[in-house]
Design a protein around this nucleic acid. Structure first.
Lengths: 267, 267
DNA sequence: GAGTGGTCTAGACCACTGT
DNA sequence: CAGTGGTCTAGACCACTCC
């Protein structure tokens, strides 16, 4: 026999009702004060239940308004094998074709005008972690580029990206150092091509952790809900790490997909 | 200017001290009642801060004992491209070689005797989701196999696995229906080989969500911390989906790694 | 201004750990 | 047994939304 806390029992009960469709997306849940009046516990207890449901992404709460069942945003499937190959082929196209559509459009299926790109650049000295990833000395100058994309006028980011290049390499084309040139038609692989680099292999690392309060706000996900973290390392045909990006993605809206082709048994 | 709740300010403060090494792994944090006495807020407030730190995986709390800084478990890196290929080659080996080491040993680096395998089988009828994945009719009989692995005697699972096969296919070798034959030397790919199936492609889908309280207990992760979910679909050389598994992995101990090889530009 | 969720308090009891 | 974290209460105030 397990002792289930009262707040959790209430949360489970409401969650079940949401899944069964007793409360449907967009519906309002009983007000917290109503639950208290109905004898479901003290306000703190009911609050705990409601905030658990919020973390799970089942409901959204708005101060002064109430709590309602969340319309689950569709998961955006990221097929990186296709995506990276597509990005690479595109780097060879002429500038007008490249300008028509970028990776973000490719990922989201949105039109070019529906996406706003925000970029901020600065230079940093490689710390232990970054130096290790690039295989350079600690203190080496790196170009640090922070990006986020949104639909025009919206403060909600689709992802938060921190991308790094070795500064001396990027500086071979001064245009790459200018954040005002973003979004760059053709993306990073085209940018690297302008300094004579071709990408051979991209290594993806995927982890998860809870969102910080700031990330929750910026990505418009419930507080204390998880994010996915993608660490992407691009390796040139010379075998050198030429770009590293750290991408934070909303956990409830993201799915990665990889396809592993196996060698045939020959007998 | 942002209004930061008192509990969050306290949590941030303690988190910073942990990262700076003021409190080191294994150290005890000030007792909740001490913080209250020190005027850091009421018990509920301090409690909220401490439980936030627990969800983030920074501390562990034990009732009756106290709160101490968590020794971060090392992340287990899962390189599925290697893993699946290794598993496939192994299915061709003789039984004594296969018996020596399995995928779990391969993943964890543990010795054969250090791993205990728990298996429970039953049959289920395909619901909408499963039928869609296998491309069979709803109601089709499936063999459902639930697995979890642990170090001997420990109640802590390394992962929670639900694996499905079309029952009619598995039944071609009656030994496959018997959970007492698990762990099967050579794994699923060898099992499928005994019924004449060779795997061609494996599709991985990766998502995240918060752990349920039960998962938190079983995987020994903090409550309200995230898990990673792997949906693995195996496709035979005939192009049919022959196995589907749903794997729940501890978010703080798992990292996926994929390597994407790109085609060269030819000019 | 009325009503909502979010935070905070002071104090109580419970479940569990150590000795 | 004393002392810990976990839960719960009743009541207060605040920040916000909507009318």
């Amino acid at each position: 026999m397990q002792k289930v806390p009262k707040w959790q029992a209430l949360a489970d009960d409401l969650a079940a009702k949401i899944r069964e469709g007793v409360y449907r997306p967009g519906d309002s849940l009983p007000l917290i004060r109503e639950q208290v009046a109905a004898g479901m516990g003290s306000k703190t207890t009911v609050q705990a239940a409601y905030s658990a449901l919020e973390s799970e992404g089942l409901v959204t709460t708005t101060r002064g308004h109430g709590t309602s069942v969340r319309r689950r945003p569709p998961r955006l499937v990221r097929r990186h094998q296709d995506r990276y190959a597509w990005e690479k082929r595109r780097a060879l196209l002429d500038s007008t074709t490249r300008r028509e559509s970028g990776v973000v459009e490719h990922d989201t299926g949105l039109a070019h005008e529906e996406i706003e790109c925000h970029a901020a650049f600065n230079t940093v000295q490689a710390d232990d972690d970054l130096a290790g990833r690039f295989g350079v000395d600690v203190g080496t100058l790196l170009l640090h580029r922070h990006y986020w994309h949104s639909t025009p006028g919206s403060p909600t980011a689709m992802s938060l990206i921190d991308s790094y290049l070795v500064h001396a390499v990027a500086a071979r084309n001064p245009a790459l150092l200018d954040s005002k040139r973003e979004p760059w038609p053709g993306g990073t692989q085209h940018q690297l091509r302008t300094v004579g680099i071709e990408i051979d292999v991209i290594e993806d690392g995927i982890r998860t952790r809870l969102a910080t309060p700031e990330e929750s706000r910026h990505l418009a996900i419930p507080s204390a809900s998880p994010v996915l973290i993608l660490d992407k390392t691009s390796i040139s045909t010379e075998g050198e790490v030429v770009e590293y990006s750290h991408v934070i993605l909303p956990g409830d809206r993201t799915e990665f997909r990889y396809s592993v082709q196996l060698e045939r048994w020959t007998q």
